[in-house]
């Protein structure tokens, strides 16, 4: 019996007059490693913004950890690594330690300071993503893949139950993408963190994901990697609205 971490019921959303999501229903089961794919402009980032409460749906309702989103206040249980995380101001003078500490700011709360436990937690999160050697390095001096790990550490420092990543591997080379997925896999298996991952590298993703969802304004597919691999080119052309060449790798 799997319980849902996120439930979206009949969600529609439009920017001004442009409908971006049209009656979307879906659930993220606890413990899932969910890959969210779809064409550019298909509404993936919008869906994530809705889950994070940054925008409100025009229609439908959202539940997070069984609570209606407008009553939800355990935001520290939801970690987020944004699409923009790797386009942040590289010149910003912050060390790895300082960046990861920001993950705890809201949790520690106003008028309170980091104590020993918090500080240990920060180092532990940096260790988890294998970056302890760089703890006092300026984040701007790291490679794209290393920076992405730091942003994951910033999310992990809160012990999230759900970790949402929006195209985290854009601009990261192939070798590091592989290591990145191994890290995600480990977080999912060993720490039982539910993952929602938006990505274009479906090849690597399907090796690790437990659920795959295709979104293009509407939900076009929701199933496991096997079912996804069994989809034909015709199905894909339908999702994407134009013909596609399948690039699913065989394993």
């Amino acid at each position: 019996m799997s319980e849902a971490v996120v439930t979206m019921n009949n969600i529609s959303y439009a920017y001004e007059h442009k409908k971006v999501l049209d009656h979307v229903n879906f659930e993220i089961p606890r413990g899932a490693f969910m890959g969210l794919v779809g064409p550019n402009g298909g509404g993936k980032t919008t869906l994530i913004k809705l889950i994070l409460g940054l925008i409100k749906p025009d229609e439908g309702d959202i539940q997070l950890l069984h609570e209606p989103i407008n009553k939800f206040n355990q935001w520290n249980k939801i970690g987020f690594v944004s699409q923009k995380a790797n386009s942040f101001n590289r010149g910003f003078p912050a060390t790895v330690y300082e960046v990861v500490s920001m993950g705890l700011t809201a949790k520690v709360g106003y008028l309170r300071f980091f104590n020993k436990t918090h500080k240990a937690k920060i180092r532990q999160a940096i260790d988890q993503v294998g970056m302890l050697d760089y703890v006092n390095e300026n984040i701007g001096n790291l490679s794209g893949g290393q920076q992405q790990r730091i942003f994951i550490a910033r999310a992990l420092v809160n012990d999230p139950e759900l970790l949402i990543l929006d195209e985290p591997t854009v601009g990261v080379d192939f070798e590091n993408v592989k290591r990145f997925y191994e890290l995600l896999h480990q977080l999912n298996e060993q720490r039982n963190i539910t993952l929602l991952l938006v990505t274009h590298d479906t090849g690597t993703m399907t090796e690790h994901a437990t659920d795959i969802v295709c979104l293009n304004k509407q939900l076009h597919f929701h199933g496991d990697p096997k079912a996804y691999a069994a989809l034909s080119e015709k199905d894909f052309s339908k999702f994407y609205g134009h013909p596609v060449n399948l690039v699913i790798h065989d394993h």
């Binding site: 935001w75 910003f92 920001m102 809201a106």
Partner: peptide
């Protein structure tokens, strides 16, 4: 002194800070 961590967090990444509840 009292709001250092909030000021710092907001300066670095406003969107992320807002999501986390600042």
């Amino acid at each position: 002194g009292l709001f250092y961590k909030e000021l710092f967090t907001l300066s670095f990444d406003e969107e992320h800070a807002t999501i986390s509840g600042i």
